[in-house]
Design a protein around this nucleic acid. Sequence first.
DNA 1: ACTGCACTTGAAAAGCTTTTCAAAAAAGGA
DNA 2: TCCTTTTTTGAAAAGCTTTTCAAGTGCAGT
Lengths: 334, 334
Amino acid sequence: MKPTIRDVAKMAGVSISTVSRVMNAPETVVESKRLKVLDAIEELKYQPNSFARGLIYRKSFTLGLLIPDIENMYYAGMIRGMQDACIKLGYSLMICNTDRDPERLLSYIDAFHEKQVDGIVFASDMLFPEYYDKLVGCRIPFVMVSSHSDEYDIPSVEVDDEAAAYDAVKFLIELGHKQIGMLGFNDVNSIAGPPRIEGFARALKEFGLEHNLEKVKYASHRFEHAYEASHELFSEYPDTTAVFCVADEFAMGAISYLKDRNVLVPGQVSVVGFDNVRMAGMFIPKLTTIAQPIYELGYRSAEQLHELVTTGSVKVTREKMKHRLIVRESTRER
Amino acid sequence: MKPTIRDVAKMAGVSISTVSRVMNAPETVVESKRLKVLDAIEELKYQPNSFARGLIYRKSFTLGLLIPDIENMYYAGMIRGMQDACIKLGYSLMICNTDRDPERLLSYIDAFHEKQVDGIVFASDMLFPEYYDKLVGCRIPFVMVSSHSDEYDIPSVEVDDEAAAYDAVKFLIELGHKQIGMLGFNDVNSIAGPPRIEGFARALKEFGLEHNLEKVKYASHRFEHAYEASHELFSEYPDTTAVFCVADEFAMGAISYLKDRNVLVPGQVSVVGFDNVRMAGMFIPKLTTIAQPIYELGYRSAEQLHELVTTGSVKVTREKMKHRLIVRESTRER
DNA sequence: ACTGCACTTGAAAAGCTTTTCAAAAAAGGA
DNA sequence: TCCTTTTTTGAAAAGCTTTTCAAGTGCAGT
């Protein structure tokens, strides 16, 4: 049986109130007793019961994180950032992987509700009314990361997807490429999808390359699908010399496809990715990519949630973080 | 303010005991009241307070997971497995990433203790006396995954590292390779390290290739280090034609190094990895590797922990799961 | 109509901590 | 030494649920 505050009190020969005080306001108890209590705590390895505490404070000091796919390398860095922020702010973190299953997401919200998490960070997904209603029904504060909501006024942190895509495509154009394709997210409800298409389009128009606008194929988050989509793209437009991919994993899929067809990257085709996951620098060739500040995104969203939880609102509700282009080995001048 | 059982009781015009009963033993309350209560619950979106519940049950229905490095792809699959098992068994999962920092690990144990997790799964690390003492001091049941303890009698699930390494090296030998190197874990306290070296040695001896025994270089879990270690290996033994790597990430590091030196894989050198992380099938060339049942390892360890938590012991304390060799594109006959 | 029984229901206690309030002790001043 | 003020301490309540126990209701049998 775990020791309780009573056991500590008995061992130290004081009342439970005194024990509680040495833990929460040590300066109010005389040194002699304080030391006895501290010894007893040490001796019994006493740890206050967080259920009893939670009951009083009405706080669990736990944050929940909802991510669509834990096997996507993108989230590993984000989790690290969030966890570091949580340590700094005194929270524990409960990570739940929805596998992009709405049912599962909803049931995780229930779990969070029951566990009384103090707040939730909602990653990447689109905030459907169904989710929103449930969340506000449960009265759980939440923020969004790598996503945002136009319908509801929810704090969020993300990168400027349109500008980032524009930069990537502009880079390709400046390299001299004229036949440029794109691999986008086929998810109808993708948050990052549309703005990245817009960025692609804007760059194309700006440089009078509108004939590429239709060269977009879609894949659903995974390597294999990107491989397939590349096949479609290059079958339909065999003269394509550069591809902008909305995820590093897509870039890897594209490069694998090209490799299997014996076309050289970057020799014959240039490929640029998006995210700069850790693997981007390990792949062969190393990926030129748009880097998102992944760790910082996670860190910041936890901070933002903390702000929301403690003050009831956040100062900057729609925060943007800077992306940057990292030129490595998957692109070349034409 | 979140609604409590009192609010539900008031709305339904019954006592709180009755409300509690419709949730925990519905058959004991007459239908008319039960329906009223159910309506009230629905109406208020009432969710029982898990603090109060935990206080009574002395259970949190939460499991803790301690992993060394969330950015290592190996753990993503494991987490998926554990999380699926947790859903099945009615637990929540709290994942903590120690970044291989003992201090941090210890402080996470404190956090788990305070949060009263019902049990902990301890992944990959070596169980130092310091950890063990703390865990038993906290009276938290725990199991180990991809690891085990020789000193203490702790339930564990893992792969047979010695046999797996043996199989990998034997495969290389049967391919006709005579000059075989190895990239191992440099971590002195690695659990998987020594048996994999032994497996390497056993295969070598069995086929009279003892002259390779010294061709082992060490790296510390990351791509960059494996790249460095490859440099050492090939500088010292330039005639090496095959490398056995104890992690897929090491294999990628080796292949990258070789690529930078313009040596072809598998054309001139064959490389075999270990783990079969998702990326193994995405890399160029796709990795030949020893596959661990990563998802199952995670799933099983959660089941095992559940068994330990509920019954106080487990039937099979040192469980082994089957590995298998997956031949892809990074190896070739000599 | 009454007794006995089974079934329902509500009151109260327990689980552990924090905090308020009042009492006790100590310290300081005269 | 006595009184006032400050500091320190303990008792008790609150926070929310489950569960035990006793009381209440309704029904069947005689």
